[in-house]
Structures are given as C-alpha cells and as structure tokens.
C-alpha cells in the first residue's frame, strides 16, 4: 500500500505539499470530537507561508494505492473549513485540522 499526502489550494490547484514528490513526515489522527488532525514535520518555508495565508481554501487529500495491479486509487478528501491551520515554530510542525472527510474512487466516476 502506497500512501500519498497532498495539500493544494482549492482555487486553481497550486500544490503546497505532495509526499509523492517530496517525502515529508506526517501523522493523521482522529480527534475525540470526530474531526481529523494532520501533523506535518516541515520547515517554515515560502510554500508553508503561502499555505497559511490560504488556510481557508485548502484541499487536503490522502491517496491510497494498493500494491495489487488493477486495484484503483482510493482518494480521501478532508474538509478543512476553518481549521484551525497553524504552524509551531518551536516544533517546526504544521497542523491542519479537518472537520469531515469524503472517500471516493475516481475510476468509478464517468464510467
């Protein structure tokens, strides 16, 4: 199973994080209130600065590819709403909290 974590701008699609292209340690937890929290270990560079400015317009995904051939990619999209999305300079950690998620299989659309 290959897992890819992606964070994009929801308007226009600029990619801020894509672990398929550049590995970044991250952790996904379910919160007690039913939401989700991503904790990402990354330095505070220009892309993280821009991500923080656009915190209310993020598309956050986890893609899962099975090792089996012919098994489609399963995508999970997380609704960030108003987050919070924050950066801890001391820990060099980005946190993104999401309210809900939708799982979908792109191959099942338009078939």
């Amino acid at each position: 199973m290959k897992e890819t974590f992606v964070v994009k701008h929801a308007v226009g699609g600029k990619i801020f994080i894509d672990t398929g292209k550049r590995a970044v340690p991250y952790k996904l937890e379910e919160k007690a209130d039913g939401g989700y929290r991503f904790t990402v270990s990354t330095p505070r560079g220009p892309e993280i600065e821009e991500l923080l400015k656009l915190a209310h317009e993020l598309n956050v995904f986890v893609f899962r590819d099975c090792s089996e051939e012919n098994e489609p990619t399963v995508k999970t999209w997380f609704y960030v709403n108003e987050g919070p999305v924050a950066y801890d300079d001391e820990k060099q950690e980005l946190t993104i909290e999401a309210q809900s998620k939708i799982e979908y299989v792109p191959d099942r659309y338009l078939s």
Binding site: A10, V11, H56, W77, V80, N81, I102, P106, Y109, L110
Partner: peptide, 23 residues
Amino acid sequence: MRVCNDDYIAPGRGFGAHPHSDM
C-alpha cells in the same frame, strides 16, 4: 467572484472526479 473560465472542451474529454467546498 473568484473564477470566470471561458472553456472549450474537446469531444469525449473533461474533468475527472475532484472535490470542491465553500464555493
């Protein structure tokens, strides 16, 4: 207003499954 795209899409082509929110 955030987007106005004047799009021409070829026969049989288009945009695969993708999400939107708060728009």
